[in-house]
């Protein structure tokens, strides 16, 4: 099928990753109470962002190699 699934996966997780990173940076330390004091939003947001960007990168590379 014409759509490379890596585009939507990559874009979606990048967007969610950015949101989580922002939340992790902007919310006060009280927000980390449930997560045992760990700033899980910041940490996990970075993981999602990296994952999303990797997917986008592969999709982009796949597209240019197809040409």
């Amino acid at each position: 099928m014409g759509l490379d699934i890596r585009w939507p996966i990559g874009l979606m997780f990048s967007a969610v990753g950015v949101l989580l990173v922002l939340q992790g940076l902007l919310a006060g330390p009280d927000a980390n109470k449930p997560s045992l004091g760990i700033n899980i939003n910041l940490g996990w947001g970075c993981v999602l962002l990296v994952f999303g960007l990797l997917m986008v990168f592969f999709a982009w590379r796949g597209k240019s190699s197809a040409k």
Binding site: V16, L19, L20, Q23, G24, A27, A31, N32, K33, P34, S35, L36, I40, N41, W44, G45, L48
Partner: peptide, 11 residues
């Protein structure tokens, strides 16, 4: 519910 702060909760 126990561990997720807003953000991770949404995910």
């Amino acid at each position: 519910k126990k561990y997720c702060p807003s953000g991770l909760l949404g995910l």
